[in-house]
Design a protein around this nucleic acid. Sequence first.
DNA 1: CTTGAGCTTCCCATAATGGGAAGGTTTAAG
DNA 2: CTTAAACCTTCCCATTATGGGAAGCTCAAG
Lengths: 136, 136
Amino acid sequence: MNIGEVAELSQVNSKMIRRYEEQGIIPKAGRSLSGYRQYTQKDVHVLRFVKRSRELGFSMKDVKQLVSLWRNKNRPSSQVKSIASKHIEELERKLQEIQSMLSTLKYLTNNCHGDQRPDCPILEGLEFNKSKELHL
Amino acid sequence: MNIGEVAELSQVNSKMIRRYEEQGIIPKAGRSLSGYRQYTQKDVHVLRFVKRSRELGFSMKDVKQLVSLWRNKNRPSSQVKSIASKHIEELERKLQEIQSMLSTLKYLTNNCHGDQRPDCPILEGLEFNKSKELHL
DNA sequence: CTTGAGCTTCCCATAATGGGAAGGTTTAAG
DNA sequence: CTTAAACCTTCCCATTATGGGAAGCTCAAG
C-alpha cells in the first residue's frame, strides 16, 4: 500500500512517516517503479508502536531505542525498563515544575480583582520574587 | 552599564537580552559611541520581571503583553487576570496529560521484571493500545 | 488526453535558548 | 605604545517535533 493508506491506518501523518524513515526510526520503505513508498501491514504495526510511544511522551531518541528493543527478541527487559524509568523521572520532574507554577499562579490570580482597576497582585508577584514566600 | 553586568544582575543571559530587545519585549537599549548597549537599574528591573514571568511558564507572547500592562499604570487588572487564567488552564491541561502518561507508564514499569529475560510488559503496552484499560 | 488526487523532494515556520564565528572595543599590564 | 584578555557587536546554525506549501511526477477515471 501507499503512504496515504498506511498513514490512515496507523494514524501517523505521512509527513511524519517520511521523517521517521529519515531518522532511522522505521526501516526504509521499499519503492514502486515510479518511486512511491510501498508498505505492508507490518509497517502499520510499527507505526502504531511509534505513535503510542510518542503519546506516552517518549522522545524520538527513546522511541528509536524502544523500537529497536521491541524488534530484538533477545533484548534484556532491563534495558526497556531503564528507558521507561528515566522517562518517568523526567515526567515527575515536569509535573513538580508545573504544580509549583500553578500553585503560585493560582494564589496570585485568586487575589486579583480582575476589574477596571489597575492594581494587580499578579503583576506585583511577577515584579518581586515572592515565590518562596508563596510556598511557605 | 554594559550588557554583561545587566545580565549578571538580572540573571538573564546576554544572548537572551538581545533577543528580547529584538522581539520588542524590552525597549531598545541606548548605545555608547562604540555601539555597546547601555543599561540602567531600571532595565534590570524589567528583565527580572521577564525572567520571573518565564519561570512561571508564560510564553514570550504573554510576557510581552504582561510587560506592557505592567508599564501601563491605567491597565485594567481584568486584562492581566485574563492572561494568567488562560495560562493556568493550559498548565492544568498539561498537568493532566503528564499525570495520565505517568499513570500508564508506572503501571507498565512496575510489572516489568527488568532483568535479562526478554519478555516485557512495557513493550507489550506500547504495542497494543491498552491505555484505556489501564485507566479503568 | 485531461483532470484531480496522491506521491516525491526541498525549503520554511513554529518556540525558546544557546553555541560559535568573525570582527571591533576597552582595559590593564608590560 | 603595544599587546593580550575580556567584552561587545552581528550573523548563522542547532536543537525538538510537527507540519505547511511549492514544484513536479504519477496514477486512475472519464
